[in-house]
Design a protein around this nucleic acid. Structure first.
Lengths: 237, 237
DNA sequence: CGCTTGCTTGATGGCAGTCAACTCCCGTGG
DNA sequence: CCACGGGAGTTGACTGCCATCAAGCAAGCG
């Protein structure tokens, strides 16, 4: 599990980590000295596809920032349903609240593409934030967006059909990753808030209309216009 | 509209405002000096039932904290659907993100019971927060809860029936307000994420089972056990 | 070459959203 | 004081989406 058995991946050198933090989400508006400070407090760890960065039961001991690869943060219910809350690529943080509460949160972070994740010890991170309120300011803005996004998804569940929700998901993914999407229908279902079967049925329709083209674990978007027609607003994931 | 035509309500005196802030959500862990400082920056305004404290299009110029009464913060979709995001009573803030972003947010705050709302100018509030990172820490924790709550509601929409969702809403309201709930079925529907008609139908069933008793705009809970049986977890609203 | 995981499709049933019609309560203004 | 209107509540009928169960196929990996 985890990074066990991995080749000893390059730990990023200091300069690369600095560059990462400089452009990372949540660290806007910091001076060079501060960027160097937080960079110096960080270290990296490699994870291969399928590995778990943290899970529901874990107390939060580190702040995590994705440096390379892709990590999915999701939420499971007692009934076994799962929704994805966040898809974090390079420069995107995984847990903005955890370091402040320290308590475990009902979230699970799973690696979708082999990833390099930067760690900062919880205390180091919070101390740094207290000394740089601008970072906390940024975090509050980001969490505000997350709340808005989640609330929009509730409204979407009420008034949009599965097909529309899936189109919105595809549009969002297209804007983030381009025309080639490496996701399974299971993963799409978790983003749209529906079942695998319903997703598959919709995808079959879209394929017949030549709006998309599918392979095992991959979707090619052929007609972007059709996605934009069904709701030009994308989600925040 | 708004406070127009109201009797000149008592503006709270300094000491009352201090007491309010001392116990207010988000201001835990401050010293007396800080409490006095933020109290000194605040002033109050009265709103009668039905008044709008702020709405979607308003830029955010003030931080708002409810001192008395009850205020509902909700979110409307283009389709006209509305969900309640927050029910704020005494000591509960209305807008934790707005003061930091300054931008208008897709939220609307409406007064359910004649209310007294404390205002702090946006700049005063953010300056105060920068000087007291503990407050920003509190805000981050609160927003984390809000995100979790919204995500849970998405899962509830997926796997729970309307009846179960309404029972959860009733349980939540019971824990916050007691056995007598002054809400219309429309308002319940906005909390459970369903339609008025469906809510009415469920309420009719619950009334026949003598679990609740209803009057126009009021619900009396008769069997608390029945609510707790259907999911002991309440929501965060 | 088997097994796991993903994909596919059919059949079925029920929940709840929608439309519609009507009553009742209450406040307001003439 | 009464009439009126609007908002809340109530109920019936209908429909259709989609979750669920089920069965089988395909592909990739060890």
């Amino acid at each position: 599990m985890g990074a066990a058995g991995l080749p000893q991946w390059l730990t990023m050198d200091f300069k690369s980590r600095i560059d990462l933090f400089r452009d990372a989400i949540g660290f806007e508006g910091l001076g060079d000295a501060q960027i160097q400070q937080i960079g110096g407090l960080s270290f990296t760890k490699g994870f291969s596809k399928g590995a778990i960065v943290f899970s529901e039961s874990d107390a939060c001991n580190y702040f995590h920032l994705v440096a390379k690869g892709l990590v999915k943060v999701s939420l499971v219910s007692y009934g076994g349903n799962r929704i994805t809350y966040l898809l974090a690529g390079s420069g995107e943080p995984l847990n903005l609240v955890g370091p402040f509460s320290g308590a475990p949160r009902p979230l699970c972070a799973e690696v979708l593409e082999d990833a390099l994740v930067v760690h900062v010890k919880r205390e180091d991170f919070t101390t740094f934030c207290y000394e740089n309120p601008a970072v906390m300011h940024n975090i509050i803005i980001i969490l505000g967006r997350a709340v808005d996004s989640a609330n929009s998804r509730i409204l979407d569940m009420m008034e949009m059909r599965v097909e529309q929700r899936l189109l919105r998901v595809l549009l969002t993914l297209y804007r983030k990753f381009g025309k080639t999407l490496d996701f399974t229908s299971i993963e799409l279902a978790e983003m749209a808030g529906t079942t695998t079967e319903s997703t598959l049925r919709v995808m079959a329709r879209l394929r017949q209309s030549e709006i998309v083209q599918t392979r095992r674990g991959q979707i090619q978007i052929l007609q972007v216009e059709h996605l934009e027609r069904a709701g030009s607003e994308s989600m925040w994931i």
